[in-house]
Design a protein around this nucleic acid. Structure first.
Lengths: 151, 151
DNA sequence: GATGAAAGCTTTCCGTG
DNA sequence: CACGGAAAGCTTTCATC
């Protein structure tokens, strides 16, 4: 599905603050509150909007260690197998299969280094994993909540 | 700041759906609507909650190509310089300085491969960048909206 | 897509443990 | 100090144009 300009501006307004009222969004994009609601409902129904969430400071929740774990898999490992395995680990907040040497990359948040190591060992211990390579985050430089249309 | 159990449950409820009403959250955590609002206000004031945002299907916004760009910098490149440079590129949705061979990793969303290449060239053209190495996402396996306390 | 009315939510104030 | 109840003011929602 492709969004039009009005939808994009609504999504942008929600990306900045998902708890804005429909009336507030409407005044920004030039629509009445019910018109905004109908579009948001439609964007949810079509899957363009997948939900609304809170942005938290990871440190405030006790997640002080972040890193990426590159996963090298055995032959014939399907994305589904990787998905099922990582989905069980709450510390893994994002994962993708990728091009290049590694087969997948997982983004991990842990309480501390000891906890990060446990996650690493748990991933390395999965039967389909041949080896891993991990990279720790030193300092987060920016974390945008993607909110616009591509150039 | 450290959150208590009630705060964590409120954050968890908001992570699942940031547009839930205070009364709804209250009924889940056993508090009245005003009590939930007071806690959310405090979590925002202390910086534990940094905002509310919408979750979007990138493809619906026209971002069909995702990748990670590892950045290798010249000597004495400060994180601030990297931050200022990447912050100007809307395609860069997240970036961190990291341990390992590369100095920083940027997560990039682009409309298509051609667009991704343009972003890559723009990053590679920055004066502090010595070389880059990029990895394309084949399929996103999971993307969680971090929502709990560390084990 | 706009409008208007009914239902529901948010926000504030105040009393209580 | 934090919570719950109640009231005023908005927001959401639905029917209608």
């Amino acid at each position: 599905m492709r969004l039009n300009d009005l939808d994009e501006r609504i999504v942008h307004a929600l990306a900045e603050d998902a708890r804005r009222t429909y009336a507030d969004i409407g005044s920004r994009v030039g629509l009445s509150a019910p018109a905004v609601k109908r579009r948001v409902d439609r964007l949810r129904a079509t899957g363009a909007i997948t939900g609304f969430t809170v942005r938290v400071d990871p440190a405030a929740l006790g997640w002080n260690t972040e890193g990426f774990i590159e996963i090298y898999c055995g032959r014939n490992t399907s994305p589904e197998v990787i998905h099922r395995s990582l989905d069980r680990m709450p510390e893994v907040v994002a994962a993708s299969t990728v091009t290049g040497e590694a087969d997948a990359i997982a983004q991990v948040f842990a309480a501390d280094m000891r906890h990060f190591e446990q996650v690493l060992e748990r991933i390395a211990g999965e039967p389909y994993v041949e080896r891993t390579k991990s990279v720790l985050v030193l300092s987060p430089l920016l974390r945008r909540h993607s909110s616009g249309a591509p150039g």
